[in-house]
Design a protein around this nucleic acid. Sequence first.
DNA 1: TAGAAAAGTTAGTTATGACTAACAAAATAA
DNA 2: TTATTTTGTTAGTCATAACTAACTTTTCTA
Lengths: 229, 229
Amino acid sequence: MTNKINLQNLTKSEEDYLKAIFQLLNDNENEKVGNNLLADYMSVSPASSNNMIKKLTSKKYVSSKKYGKLELTEEGRLVAVRLIRKHRLWETFLYNYLNFTWDEVHEVAEQLEHIKSHKLIDELERFMDFPAKDPHGEFIPNAQGDYVEVPKVMLSSVKEGDTCKLVAVNDGSVDFLRYVSNIGLMLSSEIEVLEIREFDNSLRIGFENKEETITKKFADNVFVKLISK
Amino acid sequence: MTNKINLQNLTKSEEDYLKAIFQLLNDNENEKVGNNLLADYMSVSPASSNNMIKKLTSKKYVSSKKYGKLELTEEGRLVAVRLIRKHRLWETFLYNYLNFTWDEVHEVAEQLEHIKSHKLIDELERFMDFPAKDPHGEFIPNAQGDYVEVPKVMLSSVKEGDTCKLVAVNDGSVDFLRYVSNIGLMLSSEIEVLEIREFDNSLRIGFENKEETITKKFADNVFVKLISK
DNA sequence: TAGAAAAGTTAGTTATGACTAACAAAATAA
DNA sequence: TTATTTTGTTAGTCATAACTAACTTTTCTA
Ligand SMILES: [Mn+2]
Ligand SMILES: [Mn+2]
Ligand SMILES: [Mn+2]
Ligand SMILES: [Mn+2]
């Protein structure tokens, strides 16, 4: 008579798909998140992701109808948040204790996040004294699965003349993170948007006594908090 | 023209089999190690392990002929030793930093040992200041794959009246490790073999002002260094 | 609103690593 | 040395998670 769903018996693959759906829903608040987008994000064929959606739907982690948009059940959301929690705690450990750089942590955390042990992750959190954010500035969800929803302000959406503070970066691309480090940007950097060029959407920004021109694509992956407008 | 075998592209399964073969060869110096023993050790059918032996043979990690005894190639041995190195370093980390007990570390280390990252394990080792032994008393191989071969003396082989020191325990069974802890035995305990009962091969041992009767099976899993005879 | 493009689904194939059942070889005992 | 038991191998099946190719449904656009 168990109506509790077993959150432990998921494969690495199932976990990664649920996390991907969660991330896509988060990053595309308004737009419809469908199968093709998921397939693209997971770097698999639409047939493969469609298969997995059917499987996760039958297992009650995904609630979506044929041809409809993707949605997670409460159980699916919980799996995703716990995976993100593990991912970010491991990234923090690698960065703070094992001399990993900004761009090195993500790949290894992708593997470590799938280790099955509640004690492991809770003790790791205690060992690090309950860190609030990961090395990329993202909040670490707590053991209860509370996900702090901080609306992300992309640097590309800041108006000319405004000043902001870098609070987080997208951690998906090693090349991007190296690029960010190389030009001297880091978490907490104060950035002033000096000029927005309509022609190609590039931005001229100033920070730490330097000036740089960045593309819109670059600015889309940098998240900031507005200081003055 | 690459004659270097890629040690990275092994599946979790392939790694576990290679480790199992290495352990079996180590624990059965004289006797023949064959397919059935491997199947039993891995808790799979002989057909499954036979399949894997064929695969690992074709990949040049195992060198054995049909119906012959199992043997590892130099590459196979290296994979196994590196896996054991990772396993023992993770056990040490869990035990020394994350409040895991003796009997809890093995299961989680079985998962962690498969994480692919040289930097991860080398940095973990540095972080812990290059520990020599794991929580069960086993030597931790170095990054070069040197495996210190310490001949294991089983407590069951000690003669009546002799005194010895507990240097390691078999870590495969949670029940066994709890049992060891419960009766008050620990690494470095000095043990005197008071009596060996021919009838059922049980032993009466004395240690830390206590006396206990243990079975031969129990004594087979406790490894000691002789102090006096 | 019809036709084209995009998005989603289905069918059939592959690789991995399990399984059982049947069979062959080797080792042991009578 | 022949028979029996043990050990090892092969054949065929299943589940997972990927793939391509073909098809259907939905959405856009002219
Ligand atoms: Mn990450
Ligand atoms: Mn992952
Ligand atoms: Mn162990
Ligand atoms: Mn393992």
